[in-house]
Design a protein around this nucleic acid. Sequence first.
DNA 1: TATCACGTGCTTGCTGTCAAGCATGTTGGT
DNA 2: ACCAACATGCTTGACAGCAAGCACGTGATA
Lengths: 214, 214
Amino acid sequence: MGNNDPTRRTQAQRSAESRTKLMLAAAELIAEKGLGGVTLAEVGERAGYSRGIANHHFGTKAALIAELVDRVEREFIEATAPASSLEVSVEELVEIASVFTGMLADLPSVHRAFLVLWATAVADEELRPRMARSDEAFRNTVEEIIERGQSRGEIDSTVGASGYAVGFLGQLRGIALQLLLAPELVDLGAARQSMEQSLRRSLQPAQAHSDGSD
Amino acid sequence: MGNNDPTRRTQAQRSAESRTKLMLAAAELIAEKGLGGVTLAEVGERAGYSRGIANHHFGTKAALIAELVDRVEREFIEATAPASSLEVSVEELVEIASVFTGMLADLPSVHRAFLVLWATAVADEELRPRMARSDEAFRNTVEEIIERGQSRGEIDSTVGASGYAVGFLGQLRGIALQLLLAPELVDLGAARQSMEQSLRRSLQPAQAHSDGSD
DNA sequence: TATCACGTGCTTGCTGTCAAGCATGTTGGT
DNA sequence: ACCAACATGCTTGACAGCAAGCACGTGATA
């Protein structure tokens, strides 16, 4: 009967739960104050524990951050990945952009933390290689979609896949950061709509200039 | 004859010179290690003085940063502003993008510092409003160009000026930050060319779909 | 000589890290 | 089923390092 006691948890459960809470708290704080503005003590207390717990679980601040980046990056990628690949390449890219911008409308702190960490990585020796890899993976995905679309004749053949991928990712990140900088000054809906239109116009083969469906 | 002694300077000269050197040193260090990784002592020593001089001249770190941001932002805007407004609106935007991406190829530390500070502003209470204003000014400029172009029939009337401005600035900033993150993984030339092509395609009126000149 | 730029010693507050002890969970013998 | 011995999570106090800011000393300029 002791098994059903709700207050009685196994050590592994306790440990896993506190680690999760710590990472969540760290993500919140990073989203609010940036990586530099966060202390281990604060993380522990935000998570509902004591000062020292983050150190106890992760040993060092760098280790906590490293693990957090893994988690946050994974969740961000999962959240921005479209449900399934569409049949038409152009629409596949439009869908990626749409999912991304849609997510920005109401950004959970974990995703916000990823964007903050991405921006921080520009001047952080530790974070830079990690985020650089993340970017490259995304760009490669975009390049593949474009090249596939070009081989099918769905995407204009004069489009440079690698160059376009940089611009595509740049636009997504840049829009997101503008929004973080000044939510009230950026019309996300307008930006979203504009980006979709631009995508179609710049990708569709020159002769096949059909109107959108709506 | 004491007037020509090169070692003899007026107090105002000494003061102004050291302030300039300090700001330059601060910009360099911020470009290298980010705002959080820079100490006042380091700034002073990099500038060729002692630990305490930054504090002596600016009183507080925040004051130094504030003044530095002013200077760096101004220089960045000057460097990215095209020589003169062109006759055709589409080409005006292409020119802006071209100047910007051209500057990225060999980025002086002052301009690099601006981009780093812009990224830092996302999670910095002090910097955020300043950078937000800077962004808004640029977006307004872009909007005006677009609206002017639309009234002249040079830019497609279905383009949303405010939304497009967000995407335009986002793309510039996003490309720049990708480059800072991983210079060796980003083909700047390809991105630049791709962006120009996309700009023309997405802005030109639908019926007037002339080939590029090359 | 008076003033200002600049250097140097010092204090103070903050943060990461460690170590010792307490609390909770686990295991094995009876 | 109970309880003692142990293991593990967690807290608390202490310490070291760093950086900002201050006070005073020195040398250059007026």
